[in-house]
Simulated scan of single mutants.
Amino acid sequence: MPQPNNAPSPRPAPDFNALLRANLEQVFNERDANKRIAAIQQLFSAEPTMYEPEGVVTGQAAISDVAGALLEQFGPDFSFVAQGVAVGHHGMAYLRWHAGPKEGPVVVTGADVAEVVDGKIVRLWVLLDPPAQ
């Protein structure tokens, strides 16, 4: 006689595309610090970690500060634009992007890779492509 399967049913996969696009638009393109931190509180875990080429930052406020500093550094017309659809499975996802002035040339390209737990980003790696030769 077969035994009943008491294993918990798997959780539905998060919408990786919506999550990573929201991160790009509502965090890294948001110039209003209050709106940016509100978005981070919705999209990230309570104590997220972000890995970028210059270092590692921990906490929602620190991630907001990094995003704000980037926008300030590159000026009011600078923005990040998603390329394609974010893909992922088993709690890991990535989204390719490019950035630069809205009407100008692309300044940098890269990808965000996120570890997602319970629908929130717990760790985010910002990977930059090498400059074009």
Rank of each mutant, 00 (worst) to 15 (best):
P2W: 06
P4E: 06
N6Y: 13
A7N: 15
P10I: 05
P10W: 04
A13R: 06
N17Y: 02
N17M: 06
N17T: 02
A18M: 01
L19R: 06
L19F: 08
L19S: 02
L24Y: 03
L24K: 00
L24M: 11
L24D: 06
Q26E: 15
V27F: 12
N29Q: 08
N29Y: 07
E30C: 09
R31Y: 00
R31C: 10
D32A: 06
A33F: 12
A33W: 07
N34Y: 04
K35T: 03
R36F: 07
A38W: 03
A39C: 00
A39D: 03
A39S: 13
A39I: 07
Q41R: 15
Q41K: 15
L43K: 03
F44V: 02
S45W: 01
S45H: 01
A46L: 15
A46K: 14
E47F: 08
E47D: 14
P48T: 01
P48L: 07
P48A: 01
Y51G: 02
Y51A: 00
E52T: 08
P53A: 05
E54Q: 12
G55K: 01
V56T: 15
V56G: 06
V56E: 02
V56F: 05
V56N: 03
T58M: 11
G59M: 11
Q60N: 10
A61L: 10
A62R: 08
I63Q: 13
V66W: 09
G68C: 00
L70W: 03
L70G: 02
L71A: 00
L71E: 12
L71Q: 06
E72M: 08
Q73M: 13
F74I: 04
F78D: 09
S79K: 15
F80L: 12
A82W: 00
Q83R: 13
Q83M: 12
G84D: 00
V85W: 00
V87S: 07
H89M: 12
H90S: 14
A93F: 08
Y94K: 11
W97G: 05
G100D: 04
G100W: 02
E103W: 05
G104S: 10
G104E: 03
P105T: 15
P105I: 08
V106E: 04
V107Y: 13
V107N: 12
V108H: 11
V108A: 14
V108Q: 13
V108F: 06
T109D: 08
G110E: 09
A111C: 13
D112F: 09
V113H: 10
A114S: 10
A114V: 05
E115P: 01
V116S: 09
D118I: 04
G119I: 03
K120A: 11
I121T: 08
R123V: 08
R123S: 10
L124M: 05
L124S: 05
W125L: 09
L128W: 04
P130F: 06
P131G: 03
A132P: 14
A132K: 11
